[in-house]
Each structure stands twice: as structure tokens, then as C-alpha cells.
Design a protein around this nucleic acid. Structure first.
Length: 820
RNA sequence: GCGAGAAUGGCGGAAUUGGUAGACGCGCUAGACUUAGGAUCUAGUACCGAAAGGUGUCGGGGUUCGAGUCCCCGUUCUCGCACCA
């Protein structure tokens, strides 16, 4: 009989819902386990294969844990603010709120069909005042501590999305979302001072169980580098140039100094006769795009300013240049150039005929040898006054000490990490709770006046300024301080603010005395298992860590990190490309659900290959999983009601079983062990394969007594319940159980004795080549094995006329005869 | 350019500390049952060969009794970073 998945799936969905099977008991924290998948953006495209691939297997892991006795909390919600809804509104006129709510309704239906054990009582969405009010509250807490601030700064502007972007959202100079060339604009923008946490964000990586790749990406993104800041005086001027260097040991080799073209000092120090050239150069830079400007393949350009700087360690006079390879945004925006020992400086010096002065001697070379490229490794210091003869790695510290003693520089640590730009000139987001008063300046909205509600009635068409600025009712307000006319801040927050703390809100999304229930948060966070895409490595996953640390510092959470263990699912592509509407290669999961049912689809996704690798989509193999499910159902259906009164015991004496009973008894115990290990480590493909092997082994089932049948089938159903939850429940019921396996969870102990086989196959090799495999009792000794081999024609014919040099015997594995 | 990872049958992929390469599944071949088969069941299936046997884990070297696994060189692909001083 064909497995009637439609009836059975809806039957169990209803059962789970009616009986609140997956409602979490938050009071019991003995074996608490917070399993979280990244919440989803409710777009009109609904759920695609990628969502299923993320949620299905993760849910199976959660169910597996639940069946092991853990008190599992697995929530689901919606990351509901954001640009796509607004862009959709601009195109169609449908209000973002309306389309988002509609999408959530549709998606919720799809999600429920997946049959995940989500606790629907804790479902949340970020676009409602009950949620975003607390974004504003957290913003104000940061503001109080000086961690939220506004400044005029060059920012990334996407002309198409009409908004600024964080550095992380600019990929190869293009907008992450729409691919438009990003331009630089100077604007007043709000920032979160994530840089205050740079060191802790770096250190914290040591304590969390994350993929090494992701940690490396965060480390690089934070980009810590240690060195010194050195002060150069400008000749005939009161101005000074501060440079940051990681190589103070090369300080004596400075032959010129370079400022970023945008550096404010440039105007002050440029000599009159060079003004025109400098201005022309700066203009030429402006027309370059960000990609062209930062491309490493592009030849470096620059001009001389006419000014000279004085090297503080040897009083040498060196020219001051400006060049596009120096970035205003990093360090001090000025560098000391040591062409002999820095590749970029070398290239620049060669091009403009600037002097190259060797101060680190490569071992085994002479001072007078010509340099063909910069020598950047460790060597012996030369031409460096009192430091001559020192190894350069030691010299770094000595030079810094010298700089500090003489007041011309100091030890300094720089980070590449920039503050997080959070304001967006868009409508569909959290309003920033600040009022701008002509008299009082920036005035934070009083906490009791939160939320600053996002008005529904807004002309959200883009126009270079925030849509909220055009809403008179919203924007005009009295200053809370002086009562005079003032204006609200017209910007909204980056949606990464929403996702930086949602895992805390899930514990009780209706909580109204604060952003989240602190008592619950202290008991239930950090999240034990977090699963989501690797594309969030330097954005969401860094921001959330920053938020968590801040919330800890204001006493709201008691842990240092939000996500203890992190797993990335791989990406499912189609014909080698990422699925997307525009490419027209999106595979609709619903077609498969209709044809095979949700369990088969889920199990197929798990069976396809290693979870962290993803892969190219193909439905070729789904029939294999479908067959497995049908055969399994047939088997259980065959025994419906027949084993109800059979009580199997926990362990059987192998000696009392017939050969077939032994076989299935062993196999089910081996499978239980294998299955546990594989699921535990997110190796779903091999876990499913082990169940298939088990089913194949049950061909001899008819020759087994009822107790063994019951013993095997209860365990089989138990394993099925993780990977094919509806089928598992049904099979469990067919065995005569009245209640859900999740309500009355059995405990199965693996019989270690059954894991061991009576006989093992030994590979017999001659000179490493396989000549036979023989079956011997387990743990047979060499002499015994040898006596069998000696009678084996197939082996001996390779041995007779030769001299045996050596015999290697590995118990239960191989017997290798080496002959000459 | 730098860094990390990967490469196994026709296909997706298995393989413990170096110890029988190809588990499991798809596909394919043959057979059974059928009015029928894109259902189901049974058997087979790395390659060459009639067999004996030989050859096989991207290519080339090496270590070892024994290498998919360890070491060196190279190719291709994927991902990340890309003037960060």
C-alpha cells in the first residue's frame, strides 16, 4: 500500500498542535537546549529550497535531542523590516506593512507544513511596535553610554536604493542588494561604536565553538595590528604628521611620507607652486569608482606636495606626497614609506624615482647588493644608528621603547573594524528615537514615550532623503527639553539591529517590562546551537556578538557570547548558480511536497550529501528516499496491532537467538550507535543511509520471534521520528503506542555486546595486493589465521616459489605476506 | 596577488588511528509478477579482460609491508580577503 502521506502528515500536525507537544517548559532548565535557526525574511517569493535545507535538517537535529531527553526550545519568527518590501511597495503601491503581513500569513502556512517542532507560542516579528520599541530602547541605552553617536562622514551611498550602506554591505564596490555601483557621499549618519568592543570581539572567538573559517573571517574583519604611532614634524611649519606603522624597525629607512589625498593636512602643507598639481590630482581621484581606487592591480598614482617632513629618529628631511594607495579611513591616513622593506612603497618609489634605503639586511646578502623587490622579512638592522646589528624582530620593540622615551611616538594598536553605520534613509524600519532641536541639539526621546511609532501613512517613494522627513505629522514635534518646535530624526535603523538580539526576545515575545525577560535570558542563553548561512559571517554574526556584550555590560544578560555553537548549512544551487527569481532557476519545494510528502522531501535534502557543503539541486535521487519510506511504512503496517502485547526486554542473550534474530538484533544496535553519532555531528546523509541499511537487513525478519521484532521495530521507529517525524510517529503508533513518542519518550540502551560480530573478514595480501578474504572468529590470533591461509590455494600460489621476507598481522584486519 | 578548503564509478556521495576503495541511494542490465509498467520484487553493476589476471581515488614524485588517507611539486575548481601601512 502506498504510504498515504497526506492523511498521516495532517493527522500528526493536528495532534502536535492540539496537544501542544512542542510547547517549551521554560521553568525546567536541567537539560535545556536552545536550538535556533536564523529567522526568515518574509518576502513574496515564500519558502524556497534553501529555507527547507536550513530548517528541515536542523529540526531533525532538535528532535533527535528532544528524544534524548533534552528540554528543547526551537522557535521561529520573521525578520520583517527591510528594503525588499519597500521596493516592492514603490513598484506596486502595496504598503510594506500590508505585503509583509500577507507574506507572513502565507509563509506561516508553509512553515507549519514542514512539521518542525517550533514552539509557535513564541513566534515573533520585528516590524511591530512591541518589538521595535526595544530597538529604540537599546539605542537609547547605547546613546547614554556614548556608543550611539552621529557624525558627518564619508559613507557608502547606493544611488539605486537611495540609502547608505554599511561597509559590510558593499561587495566589490557594489551594493550587496541590487548590484549598483556604490558612491561616496558625505552625510550626517548614526553609528554604533562597535570598535569599543574590537578587542573583546576578537578574544571572544577563542571561547566559542564556531566553524574555524567563520572565526578567521571575523578576525580578519576586526583586523588587529600592533605597532607604533610616530610623529613627523613638517619642515618650516607647526603642523605634524602622525603615521601608524607595524614596522618601527624600518623607521631609519623612510625616504618619503604619504598622505591620503583627502587628508585635511594636505591643504595646510602644500606649497603654492604645487597647489595646482595637487588639486588636479585630487579631482582625478574623485572620478574614480571605489573599485578602481582600491584595486591592487591598478598602478599606483600620486603627486608631490612640495612639503618636507623630518624623520624624528635621524632628522632626515623626506618629501611629503599624496597618493591614492593611502586610505583616509585607516590608521591616521598617513604612512611613512620604506620602499626597501614594503612592496607598495617599493613599487611607488620605483615609479617616481624616489630613493630606496636599505635598513634591514637579508641573511646571506651584502649591503651593496641591489634590491629587486622589497625585503619584508626578518633580518639584521643596518643604517639605523644605535640599533645597528639587532635582529629586526627584536628591533621593533626596542625602537618603540626609544620612541616613547623621547616623546616622538608610542605603542599603538589599530583595528580595521569601523563603527557600524546604522541609519538608513528609508521608510520600512525602526525610527531613530532622537529629536533635533534648534536650541538643544540632539535630544533623546524619553523612554516612557517609546515607541516612536512608524506612521502608516507615508509617501515612501525614494527622493534622496528619508521618506519620513516628508510626513509632517511624524517629523514635527516639540522639543522634550525646551518645548519649542523641533524635528524628529527622519532615518530608520539598519535591519541588522533587529536581528542582533531577537534570540533573547523569543523566550517571551509578549514581555512588556523590557526588551526581554532577563530572568529567562539568564537561564536560557547563550543559544546552544545556531544554524544559518555563512554569508552572515561578518555582519549579523558580528553585530549580534557586539549587542550581547553590550547587553551584558548593562546587566541584562549574564553570558559573554550569544551563540555557543554555530553550524553553517551549505548552499543549494541550481545549474551551478544560486537560485534567484531573476535567473529563473528557483525550484519550488511545494511541487515535491505534493508529490512525495514533507518527510520524504526533508529526508532527501538530508540524504543528498554533507550538510555544510550544500550542492547543486537535482531531484534524481528523491525516488530512492520515497521507496525507503514506502517500504518502511509497509513493514510497520504489516505488524499493525500485532505486537501491541509483546514486551521486549532491554537486552537479549545472543546465544539464545537464532541466526536471523542475531543478525537483526546486532544490526539494530549497530544502527542505533551509528545513527546517534552521525546526527549528533550534523552528518545527516550517513545517518539516513544507516537506516536504509537497517531496513535492507530486515529481509530476514519473518524468521524472528515477536519479541525480537518488537525490539527492532520500536528502535527503528524511534530513529525515524527524528528524520521523518510524521512517519516516525505513525510507525510508533502502529506498534500499539497511544501517545506521541515525543510525550512518552522511550530510553533505549545500546547493547554493547551486540555491536561485536562473531566473525570478521580478514584481508589476505601478498606484497600488499589483496589475494583473498577469509572469515575467522573475532580476535583470532596470528597462528590460527596463518593455518587457514596456508590451506588457501589462491593465496599460496603467489607464495610457493618465493622467499617469505616478512609477515604482518593486524588483528581482525589484515594479514600481509611479503615475499621476494 | 594572499589565505583556506576541495578533487573518489555514468551521477549524488561512503570509507575509524595509514589496513578489504566505492557503504547508502540514483541510473543502468537481466529476470519474476503483470493486459500494461515511469509500480513492485530478485540478481548484477569501478574499469580492461572469455578467463587467469591486471589497472584504478586530479597529474607527477616520495615515505611505508601497506596510502583515498601522511610528505613534496604541479593542475583545476570553490570560498574568503584584496593597497589596512
Amino acid at each position: 500500500m502506498k504510504y498515504p502521506f497526506k492523511e498521516i502528515e495532517s493527522k500528526w500536525l493536528k495532534y502536535w498542535e492540539d496537544n501542544q507537544v512542542f510547547k517549551t517548559d521554560f521553568s525546567n532548565i536541567d537539560k535545556k537546549l536552545y536550538v535556533l535557526v536564523m529567522f526568515l525574511y518574509p518576502s513574496g517569493a515564500k519558502l524556497h529550497i534553501g529555507h527547507w535545507y536550513n530548517y528541515g535538517p536542523t529540526d531533525s537535529w532538535a528532535r533527535f535531542k528532544k528524544l534524548q531527553g533534552y528540554n528543547v526550545f526551537e522557535p521561529m519568527g520573521y525578520d520583517a523590516f527591510g528594503l525588499p518590501a519597500e521596493n516592492y511597495a514603490i513598484k506596486t503601491g502595496i504598503h510594506p506593512y500590508d505585503s509583509t503581513m500577507k507574506n507572513i500569513q502565507d509563509i506561516r502556512v508553509q512553515l507549519k507544513k514542514m512539521g518542525c517542532m517550533y514552539d509557535w507560542n513564541t513566534e515573533l516579528m520585528t516590524c511591530v511596535p512591541e518589538y521595535y520599541k526595544w530597538n529604540q530602547w537599546i539605542f537609547l541605552q547605547m546613546y547614554k553610554k556614548g556608543l550611539a553617536y552621529r557624525k558627518f562622514a564619508p559613507v557608502n551611498w547606493c544611488p539605486d536604493c537611495q540609502t547608505v550602506l554599511a561597509n559590510e554591505q558593499v561587495i566589490d564596490g557594489e551594493c550587496e542588494r541590487c548590484g549598483t555601483q556604490v558612491i561616496q557621499k558625505n552625510l550626517y549618519q548614526w553609528f554604533f561604536k562597535i570598535t569599543d568592543y574590537a578587542e573583546e570581539l576578537l578574544q571572544g572567538l577563542e571561547k566559542i565553538n564556531w566553524p574555524e573559517k567563520t572565526k578567521v573571517m571575523q578576525r580578519n574583519w576586526i583586523g588587529k595590528s600592533e605597532g607604533a604611532e610616530v610623529v613627523f614634524k613638517v619642515e618650516n611649519s607647526d603642523e605634524i604628521i602622525k603615521v601608524f606603522t607595524t614596522r618601527p624597525d624600518t623607521l631609519f629607512g623612510v625616504t618619503y611620507v604619504v598622505l591620503a589625498p583627502e587628508h585635511p593636512l594636505v591643504d595646510k602643507i602644500t606649497k603654492n607652486e604645487y597647489k595646482k598639481a595637487v588639486d588636479d590630482y585630487r579631482d582625478s581621484i574623485k572620478t574614480l569608482t571605489e573599485i578602481e581606487r582600491t584595486s591592487t592591480v591598478k598602478e599606483k598614482t600620486g603627486v608631490f606636495t612640495g612639503a618636507f617632513a623630518i624623520n624624528p629618529v635621524n632628522n632626515e628631511k623626506v618629501p611629503v606626497w599624496i597618493a591614492d594607495y593611502v586610505l583616509i579611513t585607516y590608521g591616521t591616513g598617513c604612512v611613512m614609506a620604506v620602499p626597501a622593506h614594503d612592496e607598495r612603497d617599493f613599487e611607488f618609489a620605483k615609479k617616481f624615482n624616489l630613493p630606496i634605503k636599505k635598513v634591514i639586511l637579508k641573511d646571506g646578502t651584502n649591503e651593496d647588493d641591489e634590491l629587486n623587490s622589497a625585503f619584508t622579512e626578518i633580518g639584521t638592522m643596518i643604517n639605523s644608528g644605535i640599533f645597528n646589528g639587532l635582529r629586526s624582530d627584536v628591533g621593533i620593540q626596542k625602537v618603540i621603547d626609544y620612541l616613547e622615551e623621547n616623546g616622538i611616538g608610542s605603542r599603538k594598536i589599530n583595528y580595521r573594524l569601523r563603527d557600524w553605520l546604522i541609519s538608513r534613509q528609508r521608510y520600512w524600519g525602526t525610527p531613530i528615537p532622537i529629536i533635533h532641536c534648534p536650541h538643544c541639539g540632539e535630544v533623546p526621546v524619553d523612554e516612557k514615550d517609546l515607541p516612536v511609532e512608524l506612521p502608516y501613512d507615508v509617501d515612501f517613494k525614494p527622493g534622496g532623503e528619508s521618506p519620513l522627513a516628508r510626513n509632517e505629522k511624524f517629523i514635527n514635534v516639540k522639543c522634550p527639553k525646551c518645548g519649542d518646535d523641533a524635528k524628529r530624526d527622519p532615518d530608520t535603523m539598519d535591519t541588522f539591529v533587529d536581528s542582533s538580539w531577537y534570540y533573547l526576545r523569543y523566550l517571551n515575545p509578549k514581555f512588556s517590562d523590557g526588551p526581554f525577560d532577563v530572568e529567562l535570558a539568564n537561564k536560557w542563553t547563550p543559544v546552544d546551537m545556531y544554524v544559518g548561512g555563512a554569508e552572515h559571517a561578518t555582519m549579523h554574526l558580528l553585530y549580534a556578538r557586539f549587542f550581547h556584550k553590550f547587553l551584558r555590560d548593562i546587566g541584562l544578560v549574564n553570558s559573554d557570547e550569544p551563540f555557543q555553537t554555530l553550524v553553517h548549512q551549505g548552499t543549494i544551487t541550481n545549474q551551478g548558480a544560486k537560485m534567484s527569481k531573476s535567473k529563473g532557476n528557483v525550484v519550488n519545494p511545494d511541487d515535491f511536497i505534493d508529490k512525495y510528502g514533507t518527510d520524504v522531501f526533508r529526508m532527501y535534502l538530508m540524504f543528498m550529501g554533507p550538510y555544510d557543503q550544500g550542492g547543486d539541486w537535482s531531484d534524481k535521487g528523491i525516488s530512492g528516499v520515497d521507496r525507503f519510506v514506502n517500504r518502511t511504512y509497509d513493514l510497520f503496517k504489516h505488524y499493525e496491532g500485532k505486537l501491541k502485547n509483546v514486551k521486549a526486554i532491554d537486552k537479549y542473550d545472543l546465544n539464545l537467538l537464532n541466526e536471523d534474530e542475531k543478525r537483526v538484533y546486532r544490526k539494530v544496535n549497530q544502527t542505533l550507535k551509528k545513527f546517534n553519532e552521525e546526527i549528533e555531528n550534523f552528518r545527516f546523509n550517513t545517518a539516513v543511509a544507516s537506516l536504509m541499511e537497517l531496513l535492507n537487513e530486515l529481509r530476514v525478519f519473518e524468521n524472528c520471534n515477536d519479541e525480537i521484532k518488537s525490539y527492532v521495530l520500536t528502535r527503528f521507529a524511534f530513529m525515524l521520528a527524528s528524520v521523518a517525524p510524521h512517519l516516525g510517529e505513525e510507525c510508533w503508533q502502529l506498534l500499539g503506542n497511544d501517545k506521541s513518542i515525543y510525550l512518552e519518550t522511550p530510553k533505549f540502551i545500546i547493547d554493547e555486546k551486540a555491536l561485536i560480530e562473531e566473525n570478521v573478514n580478514i584481508a589476505v595480501q601478498v606484497n600488499g595486493k589483496l589475494r583473498a578474504t577469509i572469515s575467522v572468529p573475532i580476535d583470532s590470533e596470528q597462528d590460527f589465521v596463518k593455518s587457514i591461509i596456508e590451506k588457501d590455494e589462491k593465496v599460496m600460489k603467489f607464495v610457493y616459489d618465493k622467499i617469505i621476507v616478512k609477515e604482518i598481522f593486524v588483528k581482525n584486519k589484515i594479514y600481509n605476506i611479503v615475499v621476494k
